[in-house]
Amino acid sequence: MKSIGVVLLSFALFLNPLAWGGETWKIASLNWEPYSSDRMTTQGNAIQKLRHLLKQKDIELIVDFYPWERAQEIAKDPQYIGYFPAWPEEVKEGFTASAKIDWSWIAVLRKRSTMLEYSNARQLFAFYRGGLISTYSYPTLIADQAKAQRHRTTLVANELALLKALMADQIDFAVTDPYVMTYLADKLGVDEIEVDKVLMRKALVLAIRNDEHASERLQLLRDLLNH
């Protein structure tokens, strides 16, 4: 009976390889402090949260950092599980969004000396010069207005360029995660940036590459998050 039990246990593990301890998940990410960064000892707050979740199943997390578009592209390689942290809008074809692992926010930011008067996103983009990050997939509320007012909207490569554009009065407002922008401003000793209005809260998910183990990994994360 003992040998039969061992055989059954081995067969169960074969059917569910994610039950094995000692597995390694490798993901692609970006420098997006404080959520993710190769310059932080924790590799970022969101990365740390994912790592702690996986540690409950004795899964090691390895993170490679790239520019965001490169991270999403390189995550197609079979050596990667996927990419993180992503807004749901940033989960590309060939990947599936996990359950929410952390929260991000999207806000309008401005210089303290700049006053903005608007009632909605349409007025904001119609009345003022806005700045967005070109590699981010913004929610429709923002993306549609930026497209409609493209002559008044500046697209830049990253948060640093967005901060510089604000400080140089090249734009009147920026739309991005307020924690990322204020973290960067504090790091650079810039104290003139304020959050004008928080527009929405956005889930941060792991975009899991669609392979033969994707559904098992998605279920594992759901179970860990609901534990």
Rank of each mutant, 00 (worst) to 15 (best):
L162P: 08
D77I: 04
K187E: 14
E212Y: 10
M1P: 07
M115E: 15
L160C: 05
S29K: 07
R209Q: 06
F95C: 09
F14E: 13
I47N: 13
S119C: 09
R70P: 00
Q123V: 03
L160I: 08
W68E: 02
P34L: 10
T176S: 12
L61S: 02
S134E: 10
E69S: 15
A165E: 04
L188S: 04
H52R: 11
A99Q: 06
H52Q: 13
K57C: 04
A174R: 02
L54P: 01
Y183C: 09
L206W: 02
L54Q: 07
A86S: 15
H227L: 13
A46N: 03
Y138P: 09
M1D: 13
F125C: 08
E60K: 10
V180A: 12
L15T: 05
W105T: 14
I133H: 05
Q149T: 09
H151R: 13
E90T: 04
I74G: 01
R110M: 12
L18M: 12
A214T: 15
L132Q: 03
F127V: 04
P178A: 11
V190P: 05
E93I: 03
M167A: 11
S36W: 07
R201W: 15
D169M: 02
R110W: 02
I74S: 00
F65Q: 07
A97R: 01
R201D: 15
I59R: 06
L188G: 11
E33C: 15
T42K: 07
A148H: 14
D211F: 01
D38G: 02
D58H: 08
G82R: 00
D223K: 11
E117S: 10
F173S: 01
H52A: 14
K49Y: 13
Q43Y: 11
L225H: 05
F95V: 07
R122E: 14
K100W: 02
R150V: 15
Y136K: 07
R110D: 04
G22S: 10
T135S: 13
P17K: 04
S215E: 14
V63Q: 09
S10V: 12
S29L: 06
L163E: 04
N45E: 14
I74Q: 00
K55M: 09
Q72S: 08
H213G: 00
G22I: 02
D169Q: 08
Y35I: 04
S29M: 03
D223H: 09
D196R: 08
